[in-house]
Design a protein around this nucleic acid. Structure first.
Length: 341
DNA sequence: TATTCTAACCGCCAAA
DNA sequence: CTTTTGGCGGTTAGAA
């Protein structure tokens, strides 16, 4: 497998591209490298937002891999110069990352670049000191090791990915896809992210708070999970939902509901509900031209007032500004937006 | 933006 | 004895 930059070469220089440097830390899997290349690459089709992905490593050329594929990495660490986003791929939970990589990462972070990791790439970020005092996650099997080796890192083993300021970390390989989609979403809105998800055959955008180990059949069987109740709640987001109603559905007390929600999602019931409602509102803002009052109503946020407050708090934008920034130009008022097939 | 009112949250503790 | 649950009540976040 040869990672080439032919695609990037075709794009006119005038287009201000978002430059992404993917740092391969040997031994690496071809999968780790292909995820950002695939996901961000998909965003370019049909004149979409431009991402220039460059795979790099201290010693360009053939690189030691964990799988059976032979990987040739084209760029050296100079690819990090001026990169807007730097992603580190998984390389096993080694404690002796290449010092050149660490130096380059620190420089990029100091410059204000967005830093991300897939899988065990978090170990490299931790060694560079970029995770100190931050929340982070990694491949769940290695989460304990990360916490032990780097006590100043707040390790969250139960989520798909964590965004802490400019530093984003993701769990296992598949979660890396979710993280890439999340960044596209942050850069260009949910409509674009959804389109990319479709192109890369990822059915839906899972967001960071979702549990890492899905295991619905298992957890549903022993009845010890609120997964059923959560999906039940998602279907009636637009209606008022009280803790008492949720508890009744789960057949437990309100007190236990609170506890279990916190344990399973990392958020209190209302916080979780509000995030879900804000997500719904974002979709509506992007894909429809419904008046704010309607958007708020359909997403379960009482009124335009409430919508404004929560969007501002969680996304940092007012509804109007958000719609102006992210509304799909091909969106239709009936809520069905025309995305690439 | 300020004010009021209510539901949610969470520590504590006893019971299962 | 340990773990989990549910009720009570003070404090606080969110809705109106």
């Amino acid at each position: 497998v040869v990672w080439n930059s032919e695609r990037a070469a075709k794009v006119p220089e005038v287009l201000a591209m978002h430059r992404i440097a993917v740092v391969a830390v040997p031994p690496v899997t071809a999968f780790d490298l292909s995820i950002p290349d695939l996901v961000f690459g998909a965003a370019e089709v049909d004149g979409g937002p431009g991402y220039q992905v460059r795979i790099c490593t201290p010693e360009p050329g053939p690189v030691n891999t964990l799988g059976s594929l032979r990987v040739v990495v084209p760029h050296g660490l100079e690819a990090l110069d001026g990169a807007d986003t730097v992603m580190v791929t998984g390389s096993g939970a080694r404690s002796d990352a290449d010092p050149r990589v660490l130096t380059a990462l620190r420089a990029a972070a100091a410059r204000g670049a967005r830093i991300a990791s897939i899988c065990t790439g978090a170990f490299v970020l931790a060694q560079a000191g970029l995770l100190d005092g931050r929340s982070a996650t990694t491949y769940w099997v290695q989460a304990g090791a990360l916490a032990r080796r780097h006590p100043s890192v707040r390790v969250r083993p139960d989520v798909l990915f964590v965004e802490d300021g400019p530093v984003l970390t993701s769990a296992g390989l598949a979660a890396g896809i979710d993280l890439c989609l999340h960044m596209i979403r942050a850069d260009h809105g949910a409509a674009v992210a959804n389109a990319v998800a479709r192109l890369t055959v990822v059915s839906a955008v899972r967001h960071g708070g979702q549990e890492q180990v899905v295991g619905e059949p298992v957890t549903a069987a022993d009845g010890s999970s609120l997964a059923v109740t959560r999906s039940w709640a998602l279907e009636r987001l637009a209606e008022p939902l009280s803790l008492a109603e949720l508890a009744a559905h789960a057949r437990i007390s309100v007190r236990t509901l609170n506890r279990r929600f916190l344990a399973e999602t990392g958020h209190s019931p209302l916080q979780w509900l509000l995030s879900q409602r804000v997500e719904r509102a974002r979709e509506l803002l992007e894909s429809t031209t419904l008046p704010m009052e309607q958007v708020a109503h359909r997403s379960g946020l009482g009124g335009a007032d409430s919508l404004r407050r929560h969007l501002l708090q969680r996304v940092g934008m007012t509804p109007r500004a958000y719609r102006a920034a992210f509304a799909s130009t091909v969106g239709r008022a009936d809520g069905v937006s025309a995305l690439p097939r």
